[in-house]
Protein backbone atom coordinates (compact mmCIF):
# COMPACT_ATOMS: atom_id res chain seq x y z
CA UNK A 1 0.00 0.00 0.00
CA UNK A 2 2.81 2.40 0.91
CA UNK A 3 6.27 2.28 -0.63
CA UNK A 4 9.14 4.58 0.21
CA UNK A 5 12.31 4.13 -1.85
CA UNK A 6 15.48 6.10 -1.19
CA UNK A 7 13.51 8.99 0.29
CA UNK A 8 15.49 11.96 1.58
CA UNK A 9 14.35 15.37 2.72
CA UNK A 10 16.53 18.38 3.36
CA UNK A 11 15.25 21.72 4.68
CA UNK A 12 16.93 24.91 3.60
CA UNK A 13 17.17 27.43 6.41
CA UNK A 14 19.06 30.66 6.81
CA UNK A 15 21.62 28.97 9.04
CA UNK A 16 22.31 26.22 6.51
CA UNK A 17 20.71 23.03 5.28
CA UNK A 18 19.16 20.59 7.71
CA UNK A 19 18.99 17.02 6.55
CA UNK A 20 15.90 15.56 8.22
CA UNK A 21 15.67 12.19 6.48
CA UNK A 22 18.23 10.21 4.49
CA UNK A 23 17.67 7.20 2.26
CA UNK A 24 14.48 5.83 3.78
CA UNK A 25 13.31 2.49 2.35
CA UNK A 26 10.06 1.21 3.84
CA UNK A 27 7.00 -0.64 2.68
CA UNK A 28 3.71 -0.99 4.50
CA UNK A 29 1.30 -3.71 3.42
CA UNK A 30 -2.41 -3.11 3.03
CA UNK A 31 -4.14 -3.15 6.39
CA UNK A 32 -0.85 -3.21 8.24
CA UNK A 33 -0.15 -1.08 11.31
CA UNK A 34 3.35 0.37 11.25
CA UNK A 35 4.65 2.37 14.19
CA UNK A 36 7.54 4.75 13.59
CA UNK A 37 9.55 5.48 16.68
CA UNK A 38 12.58 7.65 17.30
CA UNK A 39 13.93 10.46 19.40
CA UNK A 40 12.72 14.05 19.12
CA UNK A 41 13.91 15.75 15.95
CA UNK A 42 14.70 12.53 14.09
CA UNK A 43 12.38 13.37 11.21
CA UNK A 44 9.37 11.22 12.21
CA UNK A 45 6.89 14.02 11.54
CA UNK A 46 8.63 14.91 8.27
CA UNK A 47 8.19 11.32 7.16
CA UNK A 48 4.47 11.55 7.84
CA UNK A 49 4.15 14.85 5.98
CA UNK A 50 5.83 13.28 2.96
CA UNK A 51 3.28 10.46 3.02
CA UNK A 52 0.43 12.95 3.44
CA UNK A 53 1.55 14.93 0.39
CA UNK A 54 2.02 18.07 2.47
CA UNK A 55 5.73 18.12 1.67
CA UNK A 56 7.61 16.86 -1.39
CA UNK A 57 10.69 14.67 -0.90
CA UNK A 58 14.05 16.13 -1.89
CA UNK A 59 15.01 12.77 -3.31
CA UNK A 60 13.45 9.34 -3.82
CA UNK A 61 9.89 8.19 -4.44
CA UNK A 62 6.84 8.02 -2.22
CA UNK A 63 4.07 5.75 -3.48
CA UNK A 64 0.65 5.27 -1.91
CA UNK A 65 -1.60 2.69 -3.53
CA UNK A 66 0.84 2.43 -6.45
CA UNK A 67 0.79 6.12 -7.43
CA UNK A 68 3.30 8.81 -6.57
CA UNK A 69 2.20 11.23 -3.84
CA UNK A 70 2.23 14.78 -5.12
CA UNK A 71 -0.56 16.37 -3.11
CA UNK A 72 -2.93 15.47 -0.25
CA UNK A 73 -5.30 12.68 -1.24
CA UNK A 74 -8.84 12.01 -0.25
CA UNK A 75 -8.21 8.38 0.73
CA UNK A 76 -5.40 9.38 3.08
CA UNK A 77 -6.41 10.83 6.44
CA UNK A 78 -4.12 12.67 8.81
CA UNK A 79 -4.36 13.05 12.56
CA UNK A 80 -2.21 15.51 14.46
CA UNK A 81 -0.64 15.86 17.88
CA UNK A 82 -3.30 18.39 18.79
CA UNK A 83 -6.99 17.81 17.98
CA UNK A 84 -7.10 20.82 15.57
CA UNK A 85 -10.89 21.08 15.85
CA UNK A 86 -12.71 24.17 14.61
CA UNK A 87 -13.85 25.79 17.87
CA UNK A 88 -17.06 27.27 16.39
CA UNK A 89 -18.35 23.97 15.05
CA UNK A 90 -20.21 21.36 17.03
CA UNK A 91 -18.58 17.96 17.51
CA UNK A 92 -20.74 16.49 14.74
CA UNK A 93 -20.01 19.35 12.31
CA UNK A 94 -16.29 18.93 13.00
CA UNK A 95 -16.46 15.24 12.14
CA UNK A 96 -18.28 16.11 8.91
CA UNK A 97 -15.73 18.75 7.87
CA UNK A 98 -13.78 16.50 5.45
CA UNK A 99 -17.04 15.60 3.66
CA UNK A 100 -17.78 19.29 3.23
CA UNK A 101 -14.27 20.18 2.09
CA UNK A 102 -14.43 17.49 -0.56
CA UNK A 103 -17.63 18.98 -1.84
CA UNK A 104 -19.93 16.19 -0.70
CA UNK A 105 -23.32 16.53 0.90
CA UNK A 106 -23.32 16.20 4.66
CA UNK A 107 -26.66 14.48 5.13
CA UNK A 108 -25.71 11.01 3.78
CA UNK A 109 -22.66 10.90 6.06
CA UNK A 110 -24.42 12.08 9.19
CA UNK A 111 -25.44 8.62 10.30
CA UNK A 112 -21.92 7.26 9.92
CA UNK A 113 -20.52 10.23 11.82
CA UNK A 114 -22.89 9.48 14.69
CA UNK A 115 -21.89 5.80 14.66
CA UNK A 116 -18.21 6.73 14.82
CA UNK A 117 -18.80 9.13 17.71
CA UNK A 118 -20.85 6.55 19.58
CA UNK A 119 -18.13 3.93 19.03
CA UNK A 120 -15.52 6.07 20.81
CA UNK A 121 -17.85 6.84 23.71
CA UNK A 122 -19.05 10.28 22.63
CA UNK A 123 -22.75 9.48 22.34
CA UNK A 124 -24.67 12.46 23.69
CA UNK A 125 -21.88 14.92 22.90
CA UNK A 126 -22.74 15.47 19.22
CA UNK A 127 -24.03 19.01 19.68
CA UNK A 128 -21.36 20.21 22.10
CA UNK A 129 -18.66 22.68 21.14
CA UNK A 130 -15.04 21.48 21.35
CA UNK A 131 -14.14 23.69 24.33
CA UNK A 132 -16.77 21.89 26.41
CA UNK A 133 -14.84 18.61 25.99
CA UNK A 134 -11.71 17.30 27.71
CA UNK A 135 -8.48 16.91 25.75
CA UNK A 136 -8.97 13.17 25.38
CA UNK A 137 -12.52 13.61 24.12
CA UNK A 138 -11.36 16.24 21.61
CA UNK A 139 -8.73 13.86 20.27
CA UNK A 140 -11.44 11.21 19.88
CA UNK A 141 -13.45 13.68 17.79
CA UNK A 142 -10.32 14.18 15.67
CA UNK A 143 -10.08 10.40 15.23
CA UNK A 144 -13.70 10.25 14.05
CA UNK A 145 -13.00 13.11 11.64
CA UNK A 146 -10.04 11.18 10.23
CA UNK A 147 -12.22 8.08 9.76
CA UNK A 148 -15.34 9.70 8.26
CA UNK A 149 -14.17 9.37 4.66
CA UNK A 150 -13.26 5.70 5.17
CA UNK A 151 -9.61 6.31 4.33
CA UNK A 152 -7.41 3.55 2.97
CA UNK A 153 -4.45 5.07 4.78
CA UNK A 154 -4.44 6.60 8.25
CA UNK A 155 -1.44 8.73 9.20
CA UNK A 156 -1.06 9.66 12.86
CA UNK A 157 1.50 12.10 14.23
CA UNK A 158 1.97 11.41 17.95
CA UNK A 159 -1.79 11.70 18.39
CA UNK A 160 -1.85 10.90 22.10
CA UNK A 161 1.30 12.69 23.23
CA UNK A 162 -0.53 15.73 24.63
CA UNK A 163 -2.75 13.60 26.89
CA UNK A 164 -2.30 12.25 30.40
CA UNK A 165 -1.05 8.67 30.80
CA UNK A 166 -4.40 7.02 31.60
CA UNK A 167 -6.23 8.75 28.76
CA UNK A 168 -3.44 7.75 26.39
CA UNK A 169 -3.86 4.09 27.27
CA UNK A 170 -7.62 4.33 26.91
CA UNK A 171 -7.36 5.99 23.48
CA UNK A 172 -4.70 3.54 22.33
CA UNK A 173 -7.12 0.75 23.21
CA UNK A 174 -9.87 2.40 21.17
CA UNK A 175 -7.53 2.91 18.24
CA UNK A 176 -6.62 -0.78 18.37
CA UNK A 177 -10.32 -1.64 18.24
CA UNK A 178 -10.86 0.71 15.26
CA UNK A 179 -7.93 -0.82 13.44
CA UNK A 180 -9.19 -4.34 14.06
CA UNK A 181 -12.65 -3.36 12.80
CA UNK A 182 -11.89 -1.33 9.66
CA UNK A 183 -8.27 -2.26 8.97
CA UNK A 184 -6.93 0.95 7.46
CA UNK A 185 -3.25 0.88 6.55
CA UNK A 186 -1.83 2.90 9.44
CA UNK A 187 1.43 4.74 10.01
CA UNK A 188 1.64 5.81 13.62
CA UNK A 189 4.44 8.13 14.70
CA UNK A 190 5.18 8.03 18.41
CA UNK A 191 7.94 8.23 20.95
CA UNK A 192 6.20 5.87 23.33
CA UNK A 193 7.60 2.34 23.18
CA UNK A 194 4.56 0.96 25.04
CA UNK A 195 2.15 2.42 22.50
CA UNK A 196 4.18 1.06 19.61
CA UNK A 197 4.20 -2.45 21.06
CA UNK A 198 0.51 -2.37 21.91
CA UNK A 199 -0.63 -1.21 18.49
CA UNK A 200 1.83 -2.11 15.76
CA UNK A 201 2.41 -5.09 13.50
CA UNK A 202 5.89 -3.75 12.89
CA UNK A 203 7.90 -0.97 14.51
CA UNK A 204 10.40 1.05 12.46
CA UNK A 205 13.11 2.59 14.62
CA UNK A 206 14.64 5.78 13.21
CA UNK A 207 18.16 6.92 14.01
CA UNK A 208 18.94 10.41 15.15
CA UNK A 209 19.15 13.19 12.57
CA UNK A 210 19.44 12.65 9.71
CA UNK A 211 16.74 10.04 10.21
CA UNK A 212 17.43 6.62 8.72
CA UNK A 213 15.68 3.34 9.37
CA UNK A 214 17.87 1.63 11.91
CA UNK A 215 15.77 -1.45 12.39
CA UNK A 216 12.29 -2.79 11.75
CA UNK A 217 10.97 -4.99 14.54
CA UNK A 218 8.04 -7.34 13.99
CA UNK A 219 5.67 -7.50 16.94
CA UNK A 220 4.21 -10.97 16.84
CA UNK A 221 1.67 -10.80 19.64
CA UNK A 222 -1.96 -11.77 19.00
CA UNK A 223 -4.65 -9.10 19.25
CA UNK A 224 -6.42 -7.69 21.15
CA UNK A 225 -3.40 -6.68 23.18
CA UNK A 226 -3.62 -4.78 26.43
CA UNK A 227 -1.38 -2.89 28.80
CA UNK A 228 -2.45 -4.84 31.87
CA UNK A 229 -1.74 -8.37 33.06
CA UNK A 230 -2.26 -10.82 30.22
CA UNK A 231 -1.00 -14.06 28.65
CA UNK A 232 1.66 -12.35 26.56
CA UNK A 233 3.42 -10.35 29.24
CA UNK A 234 6.77 -11.93 28.46
CA UNK A 235 6.49 -11.22 24.71
CA UNK A 236 5.54 -7.61 25.43
CA UNK A 237 8.48 -7.22 27.79
CA UNK A 238 10.87 -8.67 25.21
CA UNK A 239 9.68 -6.27 22.52
CA UNK A 240 9.82 -3.29 24.86
CA UNK A 241 13.33 -4.22 25.96
CA UNK A 242 14.52 -4.66 22.38
CA UNK A 243 13.10 -1.30 21.31
CA UNK A 244 14.56 0.41 24.36
CA UNK A 245 18.01 -0.93 23.46
CA UNK A 246 17.61 0.20 19.85
CA UNK A 247 16.59 3.71 20.88
CA UNK A 248 19.38 4.14 23.39
CA UNK A 249 22.06 2.72 21.14
CA UNK A 250 23.61 5.69 19.37
CA UNK A 251 25.79 5.49 16.27
CA UNK A 252 28.82 6.73 18.17
CA UNK A 253 28.64 5.02 21.57
CA UNK A 254 29.27 7.31 24.52
CA UNK A 255 31.16 5.97 27.54
CA UNK A 256 28.19 6.37 29.85
CA UNK A 257 24.75 4.89 29.20
CA UNK A 258 21.83 6.51 30.88
CA UNK A 259 18.94 4.11 31.29
Amino acid sequence: MIELAGVSRTFRTRSGDIEALRGIDLTVAEGEFLAVIGRSGCGKSTLLRLLAGLLPPTDGTVLVGGTAVTRPRRDVALMFQRPALLPWRSVLANVLLPVEMHGGRRAPHRERACQLLDAVGLAGFHKRLPHELSGGMQQRVALCRALIQQPKVLLMDEPFSALDALTREELAGQLQQVHMDVKPTTVFVTHSIQEAVLLADRVAVLSERPGRVRHVLTVDIPRPRSFGRNAHLADVATCVAELTDLLHDTDAPTPMHIT
Binding site: A52, L54, R71, P72, R73, R74, A77, L78, F80, Q81, R82, A84, L86, W88, L97, P98, E100, M101, H102
Partner: peptide, 26 residues
Protein backbone atom coordinates in the same frame (compact mmCIF):
# COMPACT_ATOMS: atom_id res chain seq x y z
CA UNK B 1 -4.80 31.22 12.02
CA UNK B 2 -3.08 28.45 14.03
CA UNK B 3 -0.62 26.39 12.01
CA UNK B 4 -2.41 23.12 12.77
CA UNK B 5 -5.72 24.40 11.38
CA UNK B 6 -3.94 25.55 8.24
CA UNK B 7 -2.33 22.15 7.87
CA UNK B 8 -5.70 20.47 8.47
CA UNK B 9 -7.24 22.47 5.62
CA UNK B 10 -4.33 21.59 3.35
CA UNK B 11 -4.50 17.89 4.24
CA UNK B 12 -8.20 17.95 3.29
CA UNK B 13 -7.28 19.48 -0.10
CA UNK B 14 -9.36 22.54 0.77
CA UNK B 15 -9.50 25.18 -1.95
CA UNK B 16 -8.33 28.71 -1.19
CA UNK B 17 -11.96 29.82 -0.76
CA UNK B 18 -12.83 26.94 1.53
CA UNK B 19 -9.76 27.61 3.63
CA UNK B 20 -10.64 31.29 3.83
CA UNK B 21 -14.34 31.05 4.59
CA UNK B 22 -14.43 27.85 6.63
CA UNK B 23 -11.27 28.36 8.68
CA UNK B 24 -9.53 31.74 8.47
CA UNK B 25 -12.52 34.07 8.60
CA UNK B 26 -14.40 32.36 11.46
Amino acid sequence: TPADLGELARSLSASWWQGYFKVRLP
